[in-house]
Design a binder for these strands. Structure first.
Lengths: 139, 139
DNA sequence: GTGATTGCAAATCTTTTGCACTAAA
DNA sequence: TTTAGTGCAAAAGATTTGCAATCAC
């Protein structure tokens, strides 16, 4: 890898998405994209940034998460009333949701086969199809 | 008492669910279950009750929706960050979600075929599988 | 410089809670 | 009675907004 410019790939990624590579966006992108796929809430990410001595306000975390989502860098996952998760895996996939712990886990798109879907109603077109597999603790 | 009493079936339904048929629960049950399948938020239901001159506090609406859900009379649907919908169709089915309007529509369980699902991870067992088909306005 | 971005605090929105009051059994 | 249920107002979260200060280009 190129240790001299650790932010370089992230800079490009942001630029390609049409977002200015500001200090805050780069810091958050680093936390989000470098560790591999993950699911975070705004609060979590904000706490992480603080823990890593990156000064970013919570408002900016929200702004950034939404901008990244709008540009396709992230995907918003809604499974828990009153809390949004953001998924750094923006590809085709689904989710396990552990009801007990509130945790999310990716399920590769290939592991779920939707053999039949209804047609989109008149005036609409099909968007994403989200499959959430809810898991209960085994008794 | 006479079988023509309009609340009688609802009274039984509540009793069977182990819930006291109070004035408020009956009023809400009437709004929820008599018009056929529907999707409501707590605020909506509260407004409806007020409009029909049924005096029910918002806290009671929330309590009641959750009690009904716990007893299997309703199903909570989470698709919109920061708002919960309650679905009076508690049977096996999925949802269309109109992104533009925030509306939900039932999709009969038979119209979606999940031909393949991953196994539940160790220590867990499969719960419900929710399929949300997101719809965009046709451009 | 100029417009985009950020931080802060206040505001908003949904949902929950504590507790005294009321009503069903 | 006795206990579950209700209403109210306050509290708790999560998220958003307004606006002056700051930064990227």
């Amino acid at each position: 890898m190129s240790p001299s410019r650790p932010f370089a790939p992230l800079v490009d990624r942001l630029k390609q998405a049409g977002l200015r590579p500001t200090r805050q966006r780069l810091a958050l992108a680093k936390l989000l994209f470098e560790p591999g796929f993950r699911h975070v809430t705004a609060e979590q990410l904000h706490a992480e940034a603080a823990g890593a001595n990156m000064r970013v306000s919570l408002a900016t975390v929200y702004n950034t998460l939404h901008q990244f989502t709008r540009q396709g860098l992230l995907r918003e996952v809604v499974v828990d009333p009153g809390r949004s998760y953001f998924d750094t895996n923006a590809g085709e996939h689904h989710h396990f949701f552990f009801e007990e712990t509130g945790e999310l886990q990716d399920v590769d798109g290939a592991e779920v086969e939707l053999a039949r879907l209804p047609n989109a109603p008149a005036g609409t077109k099909l968007g994403r199809v989200d499959v959430v597999i809810r898991l209960l603790p085994q008794k």
